[in-house]
Protein backbone atom coordinates (compact mmCIF):
# COMPACT_ATOMS: atom_id res chain seq x y z
CA UNK A 1 0.00 0.00 0.00
CA UNK A 2 1.46 3.37 -0.95
CA UNK A 3 2.51 5.43 2.06
CA UNK A 4 0.72 8.62 0.92
CA UNK A 5 -2.66 6.85 0.84
CA UNK A 6 -2.17 5.59 4.39
CA UNK A 7 -1.51 9.14 5.55
CA UNK A 8 -4.93 10.38 4.44
CA UNK A 9 -6.94 11.55 7.43
CA UNK A 10 -10.52 12.70 7.88
CA UNK A 11 -9.14 16.25 7.99
CA UNK A 12 -7.83 15.91 4.39
CA UNK A 13 -11.19 15.31 2.78
CA UNK A 14 -13.09 17.47 5.26
CA UNK A 15 -10.78 20.35 4.25
CA UNK A 16 -11.38 19.64 0.54
CA UNK A 17 -15.14 19.62 1.03
CA UNK A 18 -14.81 22.78 3.13
CA UNK A 19 -12.92 24.63 0.39
CA UNK A 20 -15.44 23.39 -2.20
CA UNK A 21 -18.26 24.76 -0.03
CA UNK A 22 -16.47 28.10 0.47
CA UNK A 23 -16.08 28.39 -3.32
CA UNK A 24 -19.79 27.61 -3.77
CA UNK A 25 -20.68 30.37 -1.31
CA UNK A 26 -18.34 32.77 -3.12
CA UNK A 27 -19.93 31.76 -6.43
CA UNK A 28 -23.34 32.52 -4.98
CA UNK A 29 -22.36 36.12 -4.23
CA UNK A 30 -20.04 36.72 -7.19
CA UNK A 31 -20.89 34.20 -9.89
CA UNK A 32 -17.97 33.27 -12.13
CA UNK A 33 -17.48 29.93 -13.89
CA UNK A 34 -13.99 29.52 -12.41
CA UNK A 35 -15.34 29.28 -8.85
CA UNK A 36 -17.77 26.56 -9.85
CA UNK A 37 -15.00 24.70 -11.65
CA UNK A 38 -12.61 24.98 -8.69
CA UNK A 39 -15.37 23.90 -6.34
CA UNK A 40 -15.87 20.77 -8.45
CA UNK A 41 -12.11 20.12 -8.46
CA UNK A 42 -11.92 20.39 -4.66
CA UNK A 43 -15.10 18.35 -4.25
CA UNK A 44 -13.67 15.63 -6.52
CA UNK A 45 -10.34 15.71 -4.67
CA UNK A 46 -12.22 15.32 -1.38
CA UNK A 47 -14.16 12.38 -2.78
CA UNK A 48 -10.97 10.66 -3.98
CA UNK A 49 -9.34 11.12 -0.57
CA UNK A 50 -12.55 10.00 1.14
CA UNK A 51 -12.66 6.86 -1.05
CA UNK A 52 -9.01 6.09 -0.32
CA UNK A 53 -9.62 6.57 3.41
CA UNK A 54 -12.57 4.15 3.38
CA UNK A 55 -10.56 1.59 1.38
CA UNK A 56 -7.42 1.83 3.51
CA UNK A 57 -8.87 2.27 7.00
CA UNK A 58 -10.89 -0.41 8.74
CA UNK A 59 -14.36 1.04 8.91
CA UNK A 60 -17.04 -1.18 10.46
CA UNK A 61 -20.49 -0.13 9.25
CA UNK A 62 -22.14 -0.85 12.59
CA UNK A 63 -20.24 1.90 14.44
CA UNK A 64 -21.42 5.53 14.43
CA UNK A 65 -18.20 6.77 12.82
CA UNK A 66 -18.21 4.07 10.14
CA UNK A 67 -21.84 4.59 9.18
CA UNK A 68 -21.48 8.40 9.13
CA UNK A 69 -18.41 8.25 6.90
CA UNK A 70 -20.03 5.77 4.51
CA UNK A 71 -23.17 7.93 4.38
CA UNK A 72 -21.09 11.07 3.76
CA UNK A 73 -19.21 9.26 0.97
CA UNK A 74 -22.43 8.32 -0.87
CA UNK A 75 -23.72 11.89 -0.46
CA UNK A 76 -20.41 13.24 -1.80
CA UNK A 77 -20.97 11.14 -4.94
CA UNK A 78 -24.50 12.56 -5.06
CA UNK A 79 -23.06 16.09 -4.76
CA UNK A 80 -20.59 15.57 -7.58
CA UNK A 81 -23.17 13.98 -9.86
CA UNK A 82 -25.70 16.73 -9.13
CA UNK A 83 -23.17 19.53 -9.63
CA UNK A 84 -22.20 18.17 -13.03
CA UNK A 85 -25.78 17.40 -14.04
CA UNK A 86 -27.25 20.70 -12.78
CA UNK A 87 -24.36 23.01 -13.51
CA UNK A 88 -26.37 26.23 -13.19
CA UNK A 89 -28.06 25.37 -9.92
CA UNK A 90 -26.89 26.02 -6.38
CA UNK A 91 -26.58 22.28 -5.78
CA UNK A 92 -23.39 22.31 -3.74
CA UNK A 93 -24.75 24.96 -1.38
CA UNK A 94 -27.24 22.40 -0.11
CA UNK A 95 -25.43 19.06 -0.38
CA UNK A 96 -21.92 20.05 0.73
CA UNK A 97 -22.90 21.34 4.22
CA UNK A 98 -24.54 17.99 4.93
CA UNK A 99 -21.54 16.01 3.63
CA UNK A 100 -19.19 18.23 5.61
CA UNK A 101 -21.38 18.06 8.73
CA UNK A 102 -21.46 14.25 8.65
CA UNK A 103 -17.68 14.06 8.17
CA UNK A 104 -16.99 16.53 11.00
CA UNK A 105 -19.34 14.72 13.39
CA UNK A 106 -17.74 11.38 12.42
CA UNK A 107 -14.32 12.84 13.25
CA UNK A 108 -15.48 13.83 16.75
CA UNK A 109 -16.70 10.33 17.49
CA UNK A 110 -14.32 7.69 18.93
CA UNK A 111 -12.43 5.75 16.23
CA UNK A 112 -14.20 2.56 15.17
CA UNK A 113 -13.08 -0.87 16.25
CA UNK A 114 -14.02 -4.04 14.42
CA UNK A 115 -13.83 -5.56 10.98
CA UNK A 116 -14.09 -3.44 7.86
CA UNK A 117 -17.25 -3.81 5.79
CA UNK A 118 -15.79 -6.10 3.12
CA UNK A 119 -14.52 -8.65 5.64
CA UNK A 120 -18.16 -9.46 6.38
CA UNK A 121 -18.74 -10.89 2.89
CA UNK A 122 -18.60 -14.47 3.99
CA UNK A 123 -20.55 -16.99 6.00
CA UNK A 124 -23.45 -16.01 8.22
CA UNK A 125 -22.12 -12.46 8.67
CA UNK A 126 -23.48 -11.67 5.21
CA UNK A 127 -26.92 -11.07 6.75
CA UNK A 128 -25.46 -8.63 9.20
CA UNK A 129 -23.82 -6.84 6.30
CA UNK A 130 -27.06 -6.89 4.28
CA UNK A 131 -28.86 -5.31 7.26
CA UNK A 132 -26.20 -2.59 7.54
CA UNK A 133 -26.08 -1.84 3.81
CA UNK A 134 -29.87 -1.67 3.46
CA UNK A 135 -30.20 0.67 6.41
CA UNK A 136 -27.32 2.77 5.07
CA UNK A 137 -28.99 3.08 1.64
CA UNK A 138 -32.26 3.98 3.36
CA UNK A 139 -30.30 6.64 5.26
CA UNK A 140 -29.09 8.01 1.91
CA UNK A 141 -32.74 8.23 0.81
CA UNK A 142 -33.63 10.09 4.03
CA UNK A 143 -30.74 12.52 3.49
CA UNK A 144 -31.75 13.17 -0.14
CA UNK A 145 -35.37 13.69 0.96
CA UNK A 146 -34.11 16.07 3.67
CA UNK A 147 -32.02 18.05 1.14
CA UNK A 148 -35.02 18.21 -1.21
CA UNK A 149 -37.14 19.52 1.66
CA UNK A 150 -34.61 22.26 2.46
CA UNK A 151 -34.48 23.21 -1.24
CA UNK A 152 -38.28 23.19 -1.36
CA UNK A 153 -38.59 25.56 1.59
CA UNK A 154 -36.00 27.95 0.13
CA UNK A 155 -37.66 27.95 -3.31
CA UNK A 156 -41.08 28.29 -1.77
CA UNK A 157 -39.85 31.20 0.38
CA UNK A 158 -38.45 32.89 -2.75
CA UNK A 159 -41.78 32.45 -4.52
CA UNK A 160 -43.74 33.68 -1.53
CA UNK A 161 -41.57 36.79 -1.39
CA UNK A 162 -41.93 37.10 -5.19
CA UNK A 163 -38.15 37.35 -5.57
CA UNK A 164 -36.89 38.07 -9.12
CA UNK A 165 -36.77 34.72 -10.95
CA UNK A 166 -33.43 35.17 -12.72
CA UNK A 167 -31.52 36.43 -9.69
CA UNK A 168 -30.16 35.03 -6.46
CA UNK A 169 -30.08 31.34 -5.76
CA UNK A 170 -30.88 29.11 -8.71
CA UNK A 171 -32.86 26.04 -7.79
CA UNK A 172 -34.95 23.33 -9.41
CA UNK A 173 -38.66 24.05 -9.82
CA UNK A 174 -40.97 23.27 -6.88
CA UNK A 175 -42.39 20.38 -8.88
CA UNK A 176 -38.99 18.76 -9.49
CA UNK A 177 -37.88 19.24 -5.89
CA UNK A 178 -41.09 17.65 -4.67
CA UNK A 179 -40.53 14.78 -7.10
CA UNK A 180 -37.01 14.31 -5.72
CA UNK A 181 -38.38 14.17 -2.18
CA UNK A 182 -41.13 11.71 -3.18
CA UNK A 183 -38.74 9.39 -5.03
CA UNK A 184 -36.17 9.43 -2.22
CA UNK A 185 -38.82 8.41 0.30
CA UNK A 186 -40.31 5.78 -2.02
CA UNK A 187 -36.84 4.21 -2.43
CA UNK A 188 -35.84 4.55 1.19
CA UNK A 189 -38.96 3.05 2.75
CA UNK A 190 -38.69 -0.50 1.31
CA UNK A 191 -34.92 -0.50 1.93
CA UNK A 192 -35.43 0.54 5.53
CA UNK A 193 -38.21 -2.01 5.98
CA UNK A 194 -36.06 -4.82 4.54
CA UNK A 195 -33.06 -3.70 6.62
CA UNK A 196 -35.09 -3.62 9.82
CA UNK A 197 -36.72 -7.00 9.09
CA UNK A 198 -33.28 -8.57 8.60
CA UNK A 199 -32.20 -6.96 11.88
CA UNK A 200 -35.21 -8.44 13.71
CA UNK A 201 -34.53 -11.86 12.15
CA UNK A 202 -30.89 -11.70 13.26
CA UNK A 203 -31.91 -10.79 16.80
CA UNK A 204 -34.34 -13.68 16.81
CA UNK A 205 -31.62 -16.02 15.49
CA UNK A 206 -29.41 -14.98 18.38
CA UNK A 207 -32.19 -16.11 20.66
CA UNK A 208 -32.47 -12.65 22.18
CA UNK A 209 -35.30 -11.04 20.29
CA UNK A 210 -36.09 -8.57 23.02
CA UNK A 211 -32.47 -7.80 23.95
CA UNK A 212 -31.33 -4.28 23.17
CA UNK A 213 -34.80 -3.04 22.11
CA UNK A 214 -34.43 -0.07 24.36
CA UNK A 215 -31.20 1.09 22.68
CA UNK A 216 -31.34 4.55 21.11
CA UNK A 217 -30.18 3.15 17.79
CA UNK A 218 -32.99 0.63 17.49
CA UNK A 219 -35.64 3.00 18.82
CA UNK A 220 -34.42 5.73 16.45
CA UNK A 221 -34.55 3.30 13.51
CA UNK A 222 -38.05 2.16 14.40
CA UNK A 223 -39.19 5.75 14.91
CA UNK A 224 -37.82 6.57 11.49
CA UNK A 225 -39.78 3.70 9.97
CA UNK A 226 -42.99 4.88 11.64
CA UNK A 227 -42.47 8.47 10.42
CA UNK A 228 -41.84 7.17 6.91
CA UNK A 229 -45.01 5.11 7.01
CA UNK A 230 -46.98 8.16 8.19
CA UNK A 231 -45.36 10.31 5.51
CA UNK A 232 -46.29 7.86 2.76
CA UNK A 233 -49.83 7.52 4.07
CA UNK A 234 -50.31 11.28 4.24
CA UNK A 235 -48.80 11.81 0.83
CA UNK A 236 -50.84 9.21 -1.03
CA UNK A 237 -54.03 9.04 1.00
CA UNK A 238 -54.44 12.55 2.36
CA UNK A 239 -52.43 14.20 -0.53
CA UNK A 240 -50.13 16.00 1.84
CA UNK A 241 -47.66 18.04 -0.18
CA UNK A 242 -45.38 21.02 -0.14
CA UNK A 243 -44.21 22.59 3.08
CA UNK A 244 -46.03 20.16 5.38
CA UNK A 245 -44.36 17.17 3.69
CA UNK A 246 -41.03 18.98 3.97
CA UNK A 247 -41.44 19.51 7.72
CA UNK A 248 -42.34 15.85 8.26
CA UNK A 249 -39.21 14.87 6.31
CA UNK A 250 -37.20 16.97 8.79
CA UNK A 251 -38.59 14.85 11.62
CA UNK A 252 -37.50 11.69 9.74
CA UNK A 253 -34.03 13.15 9.24
CA UNK A 254 -33.78 14.05 12.93
CA UNK A 255 -34.61 10.45 13.89
CA UNK A 256 -32.03 9.20 11.42
CA UNK A 257 -29.35 11.35 13.05
CA UNK A 258 -30.37 10.06 16.48
CA UNK A 259 -30.12 6.47 15.21
CA UNK A 260 -26.75 7.08 13.55
CA UNK A 261 -25.21 8.84 16.53
CA UNK A 262 -26.43 6.27 19.06
CA UNK A 263 -23.30 5.01 20.85
CA UNK A 264 -23.08 1.38 19.83
CA UNK A 265 -25.05 -1.14 17.87
CA UNK A 266 -26.05 -4.35 19.74
CA UNK A 267 -24.53 -6.40 16.88
CA UNK A 268 -21.29 -4.50 17.06
CA UNK A 269 -21.15 -4.84 20.83
CA UNK A 270 -21.61 -8.58 20.51
CA UNK A 271 -19.17 -8.83 17.65
CA UNK A 272 -21.95 -9.37 15.15
CA UNK A 273 -24.50 -12.07 14.89
CA UNK A 274 -23.30 -15.63 15.36
Amino acid sequence: MPLAVERITVFCFAASYGVALALEVWHHFQPRPIQRLLSLVFGAAGLIAHTAFILVQTLPLATPQGSLLFLAWILAVFYLYGSIHHRRLAWGLFVLPLVLGLVVVADWLPPPEGDPVWKSFHGDRVWGLAHGVLVLLAAVGVCVAFLASVMYLVQSHRLKAKAPPGQGMRLLSLERIEEMNRRAILWAFPLLTAGLLIGVALQWQRGSLLEGWDSTKILGGLGLWVVFAILLYLRYEVRLRGRQAAFLTFVAFGLLIVALLAPMHPFAQGGGPP
Binding site: P31, L159, P165, L172, S173, E175
Partner: peptide, 27 residues
Protein backbone atom coordinates in the same frame (compact mmCIF):
# COMPACT_ATOMS: atom_id res chain seq x y z
CA UNK B 1 -22.79 37.56 -20.37
CA UNK B 2 -21.30 34.67 -18.43
CA UNK B 3 -19.14 36.57 -15.95
CA UNK B 4 -21.41 39.45 -15.05
CA UNK B 5 -25.07 39.62 -14.21
CA UNK B 6 -25.79 42.10 -16.99
CA UNK B 7 -28.02 39.68 -18.91
CA UNK B 8 -29.61 38.11 -15.85
CA UNK B 9 -33.40 38.07 -15.69
CA UNK B 10 -36.00 39.12 -18.20
CA UNK B 11 -37.26 42.59 -18.85
CA UNK B 12 -40.59 41.96 -20.54
CA UNK B 13 -43.67 41.34 -18.39
CA UNK B 14 -44.61 38.17 -20.32
CA UNK B 15 -41.11 36.69 -20.00
CA UNK B 16 -41.03 37.41 -16.26
CA UNK B 17 -44.41 35.67 -15.95
CA UNK B 18 -43.09 32.59 -17.76
CA UNK B 19 -39.96 32.63 -15.57
CA UNK B 20 -42.18 32.39 -12.50
CA UNK B 21 -44.12 29.53 -14.05
CA UNK B 22 -40.83 27.71 -14.67
CA UNK B 23 -39.87 28.14 -11.01
CA UNK B 24 -42.95 26.19 -10.02
CA UNK B 25 -43.20 23.56 -12.75
CA UNK B 26 -40.48 21.40 -14.25
CA UNK B 27 -42.45 19.91 -17.14
Amino acid sequence: RTETGIARGHVSVSSVAVDYVRQVFGH
